[in-house]
Amino acid sequence: MDRINVLVVDDASFIRDLIKKCLRGTFPGIGIEEASHGRKAQQLLSGQTFDLVLCDWEMPEMSGLELLVWFREQAQHAGTPFIMVTSRGDKENVIQAIQAGVSDYVGKPFTGEQLVTKVKKALAGSGRLAALQNAAAPTLSTGTGGDSLAVLTGGGKARAEAPRPRVAVPAAAPAQPARKAASSPAPAVTQSRGQAVLRLPGAELPCAIKAISLKEMVVLVKRGEVLPQILSSVVVDLEQGDQTSEVARLNAYVHALSAVENGGEIQWVQVQCRFVDRDPQKLDYISRLIARGTTQRHFTPGA
Protein backbone atom coordinates (compact mmCIF):
# COMPACT_ATOMS: atom_id res chain seq x y z
CA MET A 1 0.00 0.00 0.00
CA ASP A 2 1.26 3.47 -0.79
CA ARG A 3 2.60 5.58 2.04
CA ILE A 4 0.79 8.22 4.04
CA ASN A 5 1.49 11.85 3.08
CA VAL A 6 1.01 14.60 5.65
CA LEU A 7 1.13 18.39 5.31
CA VAL A 8 2.37 20.30 8.39
CA VAL A 9 1.47 24.02 8.40
CA ASP A 10 2.88 26.37 11.06
CA ASP A 11 4.69 29.70 10.93
CA ALA A 12 7.05 28.53 13.71
CA SER A 13 9.82 26.31 12.35
CA PHE A 14 10.46 24.97 15.85
CA ILE A 15 6.91 23.60 16.06
CA ARG A 16 7.11 22.14 12.54
CA ASP A 17 10.32 20.37 13.47
CA LEU A 18 8.78 18.94 16.64
CA ILE A 19 5.81 17.55 14.73
CA LYS A 20 8.01 16.09 12.00
CA LYS A 21 10.34 14.40 14.48
CA CYS A 22 7.42 12.96 16.38
CA LEU A 23 5.75 11.53 13.28
CA ARG A 24 8.94 10.24 11.68
CA GLY A 25 10.08 8.71 14.95
CA THR A 26 6.82 6.76 15.15
CA PHE A 27 6.16 6.13 11.44
CA PRO A 28 9.52 6.16 9.58
CA GLY A 29 7.86 5.55 6.21
CA ILE A 30 5.59 8.57 6.45
CA GLY A 31 5.85 11.37 3.87
CA ILE A 32 5.83 14.93 5.21
CA GLU A 33 5.62 18.28 3.45
CA GLU A 34 5.64 21.59 5.33
CA ALA A 35 4.45 25.16 4.85
CA SER A 36 5.20 28.27 6.93
CA HIS A 37 1.83 29.94 6.31
CA GLY A 38 -1.60 29.36 4.84
CA ARG A 39 -0.84 30.75 1.38
CA LYS A 40 2.05 28.34 0.89
CA ALA A 41 -0.12 25.47 2.13
CA GLN A 42 -2.85 26.49 -0.29
CA GLN A 43 -0.38 26.28 -3.18
CA LEU A 44 0.76 22.80 -2.12
CA LEU A 45 -2.81 21.58 -1.65
CA SER A 46 -3.79 22.89 -5.08
CA GLY A 47 -1.24 20.67 -6.80
CA GLN A 48 -0.87 17.65 -4.50
CA THR A 49 -2.97 15.14 -2.62
CA PHE A 50 -2.41 14.60 1.10
CA ASP A 51 -3.88 12.10 3.52
CA LEU A 52 -3.83 14.51 6.46
CA VAL A 53 -3.29 18.20 7.21
CA LEU A 54 -1.91 19.38 10.57
CA CYS A 55 -2.34 23.13 10.73
CA ASP A 56 -1.73 26.02 13.14
CA TRP A 57 -4.46 28.64 13.59
CA GLU A 58 -2.60 31.96 13.90
CA MET A 59 -0.30 32.56 10.91
CA PRO A 60 0.59 35.49 8.68
CA GLU A 61 -0.93 35.92 5.19
CA MET A 62 -3.63 33.29 5.73
CA SER A 63 -4.81 31.87 9.04
CA GLY A 64 -5.44 28.21 9.68
CA LEU A 65 -9.18 28.83 9.87
CA GLU A 66 -9.17 30.59 6.48
CA LEU A 67 -7.19 27.69 5.01
CA LEU A 68 -9.68 25.21 6.51
CA VAL A 69 -12.67 27.04 4.98
CA TRP A 70 -10.98 27.01 1.54
CA PHE A 71 -9.90 23.39 1.98
CA ARG A 72 -13.44 22.18 2.62
CA GLU A 73 -14.60 23.89 -0.56
CA GLN A 74 -12.25 21.79 -2.71
CA ALA A 75 -13.85 18.61 -4.08
CA GLN A 76 -10.51 16.77 -4.39
CA HIS A 77 -10.00 17.04 -0.62
CA ALA A 78 -13.41 15.73 0.38
CA GLY A 79 -12.99 13.39 3.34
CA THR A 80 -9.35 14.38 4.00
CA PRO A 81 -8.77 14.91 7.75
CA PHE A 82 -7.77 18.41 8.84
CA ILE A 83 -6.45 18.73 12.40
CA MET A 84 -5.98 22.15 13.98
CA VAL A 85 -2.82 22.34 16.12
CA THR A 86 -3.00 25.53 18.16
CA SER A 87 -3.09 27.22 21.55
CA ARG A 88 -6.54 28.68 20.76
CA GLY A 89 -8.50 26.21 22.85
CA ASP A 90 -11.31 28.47 24.01
CA LYS A 91 -14.83 27.14 23.49
CA GLU A 92 -15.67 29.83 20.94
CA ASN A 93 -12.64 28.96 18.82
CA VAL A 94 -13.34 25.23 18.99
CA ILE A 95 -16.96 25.78 17.87
CA GLN A 96 -15.80 28.05 15.04
CA ALA A 97 -13.36 25.39 13.81
CA ILE A 98 -15.99 22.64 14.05
CA GLN A 99 -18.44 24.72 12.03
CA ALA A 100 -15.75 25.19 9.37
CA GLY A 101 -15.25 21.43 9.11
CA VAL A 102 -12.23 20.65 11.29
CA SER A 103 -11.67 16.94 11.94
CA ASP A 104 -9.99 17.26 15.33
CA TYR A 105 -8.17 19.63 17.65
CA VAL A 106 -4.71 19.40 19.26
CA GLY A 107 -3.80 22.15 21.72
CA LYS A 108 -0.34 23.57 22.27
CA PRO A 109 1.66 22.46 24.07
CA PHE A 110 1.01 18.73 23.46
CA THR A 111 2.72 15.41 24.08
CA GLY A 112 4.01 13.21 21.30
CA GLU A 113 1.65 10.44 22.38
CA GLN A 114 -1.32 12.80 22.15
CA LEU A 115 -0.35 13.93 18.67
CA VAL A 116 0.11 10.35 17.46
CA THR A 117 -3.25 9.34 18.97
CA LYS A 118 -5.01 12.17 17.12
CA VAL A 119 -3.28 11.26 13.86
CA LYS A 120 -4.28 7.60 14.17
CA LYS A 121 -7.86 8.54 15.00
CA ALA A 122 -8.13 10.89 12.01
CA LEU A 123 -6.67 8.38 9.56
CA ALA A 124 -8.86 5.59 10.92
CA GLY A 125 -11.86 7.74 10.08
CA SER A 126 -10.63 8.22 6.51
CA GLY A 127 -9.72 4.55 6.01
CA ARG A 128 -5.98 5.18 5.79
CA LEU A 129 -4.90 3.86 9.20
CA ALA A 130 -3.64 0.54 7.78
CA ALA A 131 -1.14 2.35 5.57
CA LEU A 132 0.02 4.37 8.58
CA GLN A 133 0.47 1.27 10.75
CA ASN A 134 2.55 -0.38 8.06
CA ALA A 135 5.06 2.43 8.64
CA ALA A 136 5.00 2.08 12.44
CA ALA A 137 8.20 1.88 14.46
CA PRO A 138 8.38 0.13 17.85
CA THR A 139 9.29 3.24 19.82
CA LEU A 140 8.26 6.86 20.00
CA SER A 141 10.83 9.60 19.93
CA THR A 142 10.05 13.30 19.66
CA GLY A 143 13.59 14.52 20.23
CA THR A 144 12.32 17.20 22.60
CA GLY A 145 14.17 16.49 25.84
CA GLY A 146 11.49 15.01 28.04
CA ASP A 147 8.63 14.90 25.54
CA SER A 148 7.63 18.37 26.60
CA LEU A 149 4.66 19.29 24.45
CA ALA A 150 1.33 19.15 26.43
CA VAL A 151 -2.35 19.30 25.59
CA LEU A 152 -5.14 21.85 25.71
CA THR A 153 -8.22 20.60 23.89
CA GLY A 154 -11.74 21.87 23.99
CA GLY A 155 -10.73 24.77 26.21
CA GLY A 156 -9.99 22.35 29.08
CA LYS A 157 -7.26 22.86 31.66
CA ALA A 158 -4.39 20.43 31.98
CA ARG A 159 -3.97 19.43 35.61
CA ALA A 160 -4.10 23.04 36.68
CA GLU A 161 -4.52 23.98 40.31
CA ALA A 162 -7.46 26.32 40.87
CA PRO A 163 -7.53 29.10 41.61
CA ARG A 164 -4.22 30.21 40.19
CA PRO A 165 -2.22 31.88 42.94
CA ARG A 166 -0.68 35.27 42.44
CA VAL A 167 3.08 35.13 42.66
CA ALA A 168 5.02 37.25 45.12
CA VAL A 169 8.48 37.71 43.63
CA PRO A 170 11.24 37.63 46.26
CA ALA A 171 12.93 40.99 46.70
CA ALA A 172 16.35 39.46 46.35
CA ALA A 173 15.58 37.70 43.07
CA PRO A 174 16.28 40.59 40.65
CA ALA A 175 19.64 41.20 42.29
CA GLN A 176 20.73 37.64 41.54
CA PRO A 177 21.37 37.44 37.79
CA ALA A 178 20.97 34.06 36.18
CA ARG A 179 23.88 32.16 34.74
CA LYS A 180 23.55 32.69 31.00
CA ALA A 181 23.91 29.94 28.43
CA ALA A 182 27.01 30.08 26.26
CA SER A 183 25.28 31.40 23.16
CA SER A 184 24.94 34.59 21.16
CA PRO A 185 24.07 37.67 23.23
CA ALA A 186 20.38 37.97 23.99
CA PRO A 187 18.51 40.94 22.50
CA ALA A 188 17.93 43.99 24.64
CA VAL A 189 14.98 43.52 26.93
CA THR A 190 12.64 45.79 28.76
CA GLN A 191 12.65 45.22 32.51
CA SER A 192 9.02 44.92 33.53
CA ARG A 193 7.10 43.13 36.23
CA GLY A 194 3.90 41.36 35.45
CA GLN A 195 2.10 38.09 35.94
CA ALA A 196 1.65 35.20 33.55
CA VAL A 197 1.09 31.46 33.43
CA LEU A 198 3.65 29.09 31.91
CA ARG A 199 1.87 26.07 30.45
CA LEU A 200 3.87 22.83 30.48
CA PRO A 201 3.04 19.16 29.90
CA GLY A 202 0.22 18.43 32.33
CA ALA A 203 0.78 21.51 34.48
CA GLU A 204 0.38 25.28 34.62
CA LEU A 205 2.90 27.35 36.56
CA PRO A 206 2.04 30.88 37.72
CA CYS A 207 5.07 33.09 37.09
CA ALA A 208 6.30 36.66 37.23
CA ILE A 209 7.69 38.40 34.15
CA LYS A 210 11.17 39.74 34.80
CA ALA A 211 12.05 40.94 31.29
CA ILE A 212 10.58 40.86 27.79
CA SER A 213 11.71 41.58 24.23
CA LEU A 214 10.41 40.78 20.75
CA LYS A 215 12.43 37.57 20.80
CA GLU A 216 12.20 36.32 24.35
CA MET A 217 10.73 36.57 27.83
CA VAL A 218 12.39 35.90 31.17
CA VAL A 219 10.10 34.71 33.96
CA LEU A 220 10.48 33.53 37.55
CA VAL A 221 8.64 30.41 38.71
CA LYS A 222 8.44 28.86 42.14
CA ARG A 223 10.65 25.81 42.54
CA GLY A 224 8.52 22.67 42.63
CA GLU A 225 8.16 19.11 41.45
CA VAL A 226 7.23 20.19 37.92
CA LEU A 227 9.68 22.34 35.98
CA PRO A 228 10.22 22.92 32.25
CA GLN A 229 13.15 21.36 30.41
CA ILE A 230 15.60 22.87 27.96
CA LEU A 231 14.14 22.98 24.41
CA SER A 232 10.68 22.06 25.67
CA SER A 233 7.76 23.75 23.95
CA VAL A 234 5.64 25.96 26.21
CA VAL A 235 2.80 28.44 25.97
CA VAL A 236 2.94 31.70 27.92
CA ASP A 237 -0.48 33.00 28.94
CA LEU A 238 -0.56 36.68 29.86
CA GLU A 239 -3.46 37.42 32.17
CA GLN A 240 -3.01 40.89 33.59
CA GLY A 241 -5.35 42.69 36.00
CA ASP A 242 -7.11 45.19 33.76
CA GLN A 243 -10.66 43.95 34.46
CA THR A 244 -10.90 41.81 31.32
CA SER A 245 -10.93 38.06 30.85
CA GLU A 246 -8.95 37.99 27.62
CA VAL A 247 -5.67 36.09 27.46
CA ALA A 248 -2.66 36.58 25.20
CA ARG A 249 -1.10 33.23 24.29
CA LEU A 250 2.49 33.24 23.10
CA ASN A 251 4.08 30.05 21.78
CA ALA A 252 7.70 29.62 22.86
CA TYR A 253 10.42 27.15 23.79
CA VAL A 254 12.67 27.03 26.84
CA HIS A 255 16.12 28.35 25.93
CA ALA A 256 17.75 28.40 29.38
CA LEU A 257 17.11 27.63 33.04
CA SER A 258 18.94 28.89 36.09
CA ALA A 259 18.48 28.78 39.85
CA VAL A 260 17.92 31.97 41.81
CA GLU A 261 19.62 31.80 45.19
CA ASN A 262 18.40 33.74 48.19
CA GLY A 263 20.34 33.38 51.43
CA GLY A 264 21.85 30.12 50.27
CA GLU A 265 18.46 28.61 49.41
CA ILE A 266 16.99 28.02 45.98
CA GLN A 267 13.28 28.77 45.99
CA TRP A 268 12.90 30.29 42.52
CA VAL A 269 13.91 29.26 39.01
CA GLN A 270 14.51 31.71 36.18
CA VAL A 271 13.20 30.52 32.82
CA GLN A 272 14.31 32.13 29.56
CA CYS A 273 11.70 31.52 26.85
CA ARG A 274 12.32 32.25 23.17
CA PHE A 275 9.18 33.12 21.19
CA VAL A 276 8.43 31.10 18.07
CA ASP A 277 5.36 33.04 16.89
CA ARG A 278 5.74 35.26 13.85
CA ASP A 279 2.12 36.32 13.72
CA PRO A 280 2.09 40.12 13.15
CA GLN A 281 -0.58 40.73 15.78
CA LYS A 282 1.37 38.89 18.44
CA LEU A 283 4.55 40.76 17.56
CA ASP A 284 2.59 44.02 17.71
CA TYR A 285 1.29 43.06 21.15
CA ILE A 286 4.81 42.39 22.45
CA SER A 287 6.01 45.67 20.93
CA ARG A 288 3.33 47.58 22.82
CA LEU A 289 4.29 45.86 26.06
CA ILE A 290 7.89 46.92 25.56
CA ALA A 291 6.93 50.47 24.61
CA ARG A 292 4.83 50.88 27.75
CA GLY A 293 7.29 49.02 29.95
CA THR A 294 4.38 47.18 31.52
CA THR A 295 2.26 44.07 31.19
CA GLN A 296 -0.87 45.56 32.62
CA ARG A 297 -3.18 45.08 29.63
CA HIS A 298 -4.76 42.10 27.93
CA PHE A 299 -4.61 41.30 24.28
CA THR A 300 -5.99 38.36 22.36
CA PRO A 301 -4.36 37.95 18.94
CA GLY A 302 -6.90 37.54 16.19
CA ALA A 303 -7.13 34.66 13.76
Results as ranks from 00 to 15, higher is better:
residue 272 Q to Y: 15
residue 284 D to H: 11
residue 267 Q to E: 07
residue 278 R to L: 07
residue 254 V to W: 13
residue 276 V to W: 07
residue 269 V to A: 00
residue 265 E to T: 15
residue 261 E to W: 11
residue 267 Q to N: 04
residue 255 H to E: 07
residue 274 R to Y: 11
residue 285 Y to S: 01
residue 282 K to S: 13
residue 254 V to P: 05
residue 263 G to P: 13
residue 261 E to H: 07
residue 262 N to Y: 09
residue 282 K to V: 14
residue 263 G to C: 11
residue 277 D to G: 06
residue 263 G to M: 11
residue 258 S to T: 15
residue 284 D to P: 07
residue 278 R to D: 09
residue 272 Q to P: 06
residue 261 E to M: 06
residue 254 V to I: 10
residue 261 E to L: 07
residue 269 V to P: 00
residue 259 A to I: 02
residue 277 D to W: 04
residue 281 Q to M: 05
residue 258 S to M: 11
residue 281 Q to H: 06
residue 269 V to I: 04
residue 270 Q to E: 15
residue 274 R to Q: 13
residue 262 N to K: 05
residue 274 R to C: 04
residue 284 D to L: 08
residue 285 Y to Q: 02
residue 276 V to S: 05
residue 287 S to G: 08
residue 275 F to C: 00
residue 285 Y to L: 03
residue 254 V to M: 03
residue 259 A to C: 09
residue 264 G to E: 09
residue 255 H to K: 03
residue 256 A to Q: 11
residue 279 D to C: 05
residue 260 V to H: 01
residue 263 G to K: 12
residue 267 Q to S: 06
residue 268 W to Q: 02
residue 272 Q to V: 15
residue 285 Y to F: 10
residue 282 K to M: 10
residue 278 R to Q: 12
residue 283 L to R: 13
residue 279 D to K: 08
residue 279 D to G: 04
residue 281 Q to V: 07
residue 271 V to P: 07
residue 263 G to S: 12
residue 286 I to P: 05
residue 265 E to I: 11
residue 284 D to M: 06
residue 275 F to Q: 01
residue 262 N to R: 05
residue 263 G to A: 08
residue 258 S to H: 15
residue 255 H to R: 03
residue 279 D to N: 09
residue 256 A to T: 15
residue 262 N to I: 07
residue 257 L to A: 15
residue 271 V to C: 02
residue 264 G to W: 10
residue 284 D to N: 11
residue 286 I to V: 15
residue 265 E to C: 04
residue 276 V to N: 03
residue 267 Q to V: 06
residue 263 G to V: 09
residue 273 C to S: 06
residue 283 L to I: 15
residue 283 L to A: 11
residue 266 I to P: 00
residue 272 Q to C: 14
residue 267 Q to C: 02
residue 273 C to A: 06
residue 263 G to Y: 13
residue 284 D to G: 10
residue 257 L to Q: 13
residue 275 F to R: 00
residue 267 Q to I: 09
residue 283 L to G: 07
residue 257 L to R: 12
residue 255 H to F: 01
residue 257 L to C: 14
residue 268 W to H: 01
residue 264 G to Q: 07
residue 266 I to R: 01
residue 265 E to S: 08
residue 270 Q to Y: 12
residue 275 F to W: 09
residue 255 H to Q: 06
residue 283 L to S: 09
residue 254 V to R: 02
residue 284 D to C: 07
residue 286 I to A: 01
residue 255 H to C: 01
residue 261 E to D: 13
residue 264 G to L: 04
residue 267 Q to F: 02
residue 281 Q to Y: 08
